[in-house]
Design a protein around this nucleic acid. Structure first.
Lengths: 138, 138
DNA sequence: TTGACAAATAGGATTGAATCCTATTTAATC
DNA sequence: GATTAAATAGGATTCAATCCTATTTGTCAA
């Protein structure tokens, strides 16, 4: 929490009870909650806190690079006809998702402890950045 | 398209002009479109096709394992307070997203051609499956 | 080929996530 | 403590996704 105050100052963000509560709720969760989940949690302590405030606060933190939005989540559903093993590149600018193939990546193996901790049925490398079109038109 | 008809038969899906058109539109796109994008595209040829039909058709194909839904997309936005290098495991059952650390995975390098094709700013391994809680409660 | 029927579609209604709008409140600074 | 720009509450709005139901259409068997 030390660095929370520092990061707020560094980004000219006022320290409000709502922001402190949102940050605490997020960092104390292990499952990467949605704005709605955090809102329901915080209602117990702040019955009047609005969902908009929770959502806006989280986006404010994200813009200040204090937290991240989990890849993909929050965007409209997208469909993929490619049934072969492949991976995804997501263009931050045009929002296109492009496949790439890489057998070295296909053969990545994760640690045995992780295999014990979870039953893994899907595995995909998700890259993000700028596609050729978007970087050249800037 | 051969295998499209076969797959439909194998899954007892009637072959309708709408389904054929949706499948063609999806497979001829390179950017993994949304239902809305496909719907706008198909309106040119089928002015009366409904968005619900497009969306339902795509979900039907996905349920029959003919296509996939791109990871994360379509779910509510989720937030991640972890600023260290890490990767994600997504539980299909409880929808929790859990971090894991794996330095071997951190150091994955993709092919030089890919580095040329895109400007890569983010890299993350996305696993999916069942978390410990969910697999034991089944 | 036709008839019967279960399945699929159109399109309007509804739900749910996210955002916008604006009056009110509040943190920061002097 | 007063000032001011920023933040909040909560109702309204937008947009994606889904539901509902009357109508249409593939499929299969006669």
């Amino acid at each position: 929490m030390e660095s929370f105050y520092e990061q707020c100052k560094a980004n000219n963000l006022k320290i409000t009870p709502q922001r402190v509560a949102v940050f605490k709720a997020l960092t104390s969760s292990l499952s990467h909650p949605s704005a709605d989940q955090i809102h329901r949690e915080l209602k117990k302590e702040f019955p009047n806190i609005s969902l908009d405030t929770v959502n806006r606060t989280l986006l404010t933190f994200a813009k200040a690079d204090m937290i991240d939005v989990v890849e993909g989540h929050g965007d409209p559903r997208r469909f993929d006809p490619n049934q072969e093993a492949h991976h995804h590149f997501y263009c931050i600018s045009c929002r296109g998702i492009f496949d790439f193939h890489d057998s070295a990546v296909d053969n990545i193996s994760v640690s045995p402890e992780l295999e014990k901790r979870f039953t893994i049925t899907g595995k995909r490398l998700c890259l993000s950045g700028y596609c050729d079109n978007c970087r050249s038109s800037q």
